[in-house]
Design a protein around this nucleic acid. Structure first.
Length: 472
RNA sequence: GGCGGCAUGGCCAAGUGGCUAAGGCGCUGGAUUGCAAAUCCAGGACCCCCGGUUCGAAUCCGGGUGCCGCCUCCA
């Protein structure tokens, strides 16, 4: 089975075929760094990492670009106030807006490492691509897709026939006045800003459009995707909230500029809910990576919790499901440790392992069906515990776990620590405990067991009165 | 008001026309144990509601209810 992806542009699953054989050009909408990236954001970014890893698993060279938006965007109506989210945060913290974006961008990258994300080819900053944006805007103006009003430049949505094809919105049915005042200087209420000007803005550039300008929200992604991946890309990802207007506008400006299809596949992640509803500052449930670590969970538990649900299904985050994820992971860690002790046995269970491997791969190939792929691993665990997998089968199972982990990035497969010397020491302690048990000295037996437990050693008593042990 | 998505056992979550509806976590009973842990066996679903299509629906269609997203920056 080849890789099938649900393309949110065509609204159906399609076989994945890149433009260039063996190479995937992928652009992931990254964070706007005006505050700490939260776990909802991470759902989208971890998905991007998972997708990249699966593509690599399938043998592709992945050119992954994840942007970092470090320039605040003004909504048209806020222009009078001269403030956007980055500037607002800057004022709140009493520092320069550039300091804000630098600080939060740094935290974002650090969190990415904590959560086990593979490093993207590049994390371009919007502020470093102003010339590329200006180039596109000027060309769009020249070709009649954009128009200037004073020192502002707008994209004329009526000039782009397919505007609305991604989101399903129709220009005339967008209720422009529903939540905001219609901007009088736009020809059509749905026209969007490519470039804005405001002398009070803090992050601004002197360009052909005027001395106090800054980019509209959408142009940066078009410019950065083009700068790093070329006029056409294979995959563009983002959260479902980006579909409209962000991605719709990107398509319009990029395709109007190049005359070619912008992205072949669009993939959008559903929102993460918290406690059954949306997360919000007022509810105090906008958690970030540190909140999770401070509660004693490993980062991989969060990674697993956010990846184990299908990306196109809503996922409800609670502390309970995080705890559950951590426990489920322990089951797989345990599986690996058990398998390590079985590789020397008589070969058995190779067919079962092969079936699990096929199930895992087919599930991932089916639009990254992680829940089903993970279930295949747990089914295999049941077979291993029944004693059906030994020797070559156990080795194959370990190989499968390693393969799965290269994609999921959440397992602990290393043989748990300790050298021969420590092993001998533990053997002696276990023997001492058994001697105490034989003497019915339960207090001493339990004391030794507690000591072993404290060192991460699990002792399993067998029916014949003996004991075996392994590292947790 | 317009557009789109979701609703499966206590919790999480696959399955999208047809064997006894995967899997995880938890729970209950039993086996084993000195007690535990681990493991094994056993136990749980009117698939949101109401209609309809069909030989047959969790799966398709219509209506309802609830939740989520977008239409303003937002993963």
């Amino acid at each position: 089975m080849s890789f099938q992806v649900y393309n949110s542009f065509s609204k159906k699953k399609e076989p994945f075929e890149p433009l260039s054989e063996g190479v995937v050009r992928m652009y992931n909408c990254g964070p706007t760094v005006y505050s700490r990236v939260h776990i909802g954001n991470w759902r989208a970014f971890l998905f991007a990492d998972l997708l990249r890893r699966w593509l690599e698993h399938e043998g592709y060279e992945v050119r992954q670009v994840m942007n970092i938006t470090d320039v605040g965007h003004l909504t048209d109506e806020m222009a009078d106030e001269g403030e956007d989210k980055i500037e607002a945060q800057a004022r709140r913290e009493g520092v320069d807006p550039w300091k804000i974006s630098e600080t939060y961008a740094g935290q974002f990258l650090a969190d990415a490492v904590t959560l086990g994300c593979k490093e993207a080819m590049v994390y371009p900053r919007a502020s470093d691509h102003v010339p590329q944006m200006v180039e596109m805007i000027e060309a769009l103006e020249k070709s009649g897709h954009a128009y200037r009003t004073g020192e502002n430049v707008y994209f004329d949505v009526t000039s782009f026939e397919n505007y609305g094809a991604l989101s399903g919105n129709k220009i005339d049915e967008l209720d422009a006045g529903a939540r905001i005042e219609v901007n009088e200087e736009k020809r059509h209420p749905a026209d969007f800003a490519l470039w804005k000007s405001d002398e009070h803005h803090l992050q601004k550039w002197d360009t052909v459009f005027g001395p106090h300008g800054f980019p509209g929200w959408h142009i940066e992604c078009s410019a950065m995707a083009r700068a790093h991946l070329g006029d056409q890309i294979d995959i563009h990802t983002g959260g479902e909230d980006n579909v409209f207007p962000h991605h719709e506008c990107e398509i319009a400006q990029s395709e109007a500029f190049t005359g070619e299809q912008f992205a072949r596949y669009w993939m959008h992640t559903k929102f993460l809910q918290v406690d059954g509803g949306k997360m919000s500052k007022s509810l105090g449930n906008v958690w970030n990576v540190d909140d999770v670590l401070e509660r004693g969970y490993e980062a991989r538990a969060l990674r697993f919790a956010l990846l184990r649900g299908h990306y196109r299904q809503p996922l409800n985050f609670t502390w309970d499901i995080l705890a559950e994820s951590a426990r489920a992971l322990e089951g797989l860690d345990d599986l690996a440790q058990r398998l390590l002790r079985k590789v020397d046995g008589e070969d058995a269970g190779e067919e079962e392992v092969a079936a699990a491997a096929t199930e895992f791969r087919d599930s991932m190939n089916d639009d990254l069906n992680v829940p089903k792929a993970v279930a295949a691993l747990f089914t295999l665990r049941g077979e291993v515990l029944e004693g059906a997998v030994e020797g070559a089968g156990a080795q194959a199972a370990l190989d499968l776990l390693a393969e799965a982990d290269a994609v999921l990035g959440v397992l602990e497969l290393e043989p748990a620590g300790g050298g021969a010397e420590e092993d001998a020491e533990i053997d002696a302690l276990v023997a001492a405990r058994n001697a105490a048990r034989d003497a019915k000295d339960w207090a001493e037996a339990d004391r030794v067991r507690d000591e072993l437990n404290a060192r991460g050693i699990v002792v399993e008593d067998t029916a014949d009165g003996g004991s075996s042990w392994f590292r947790k």
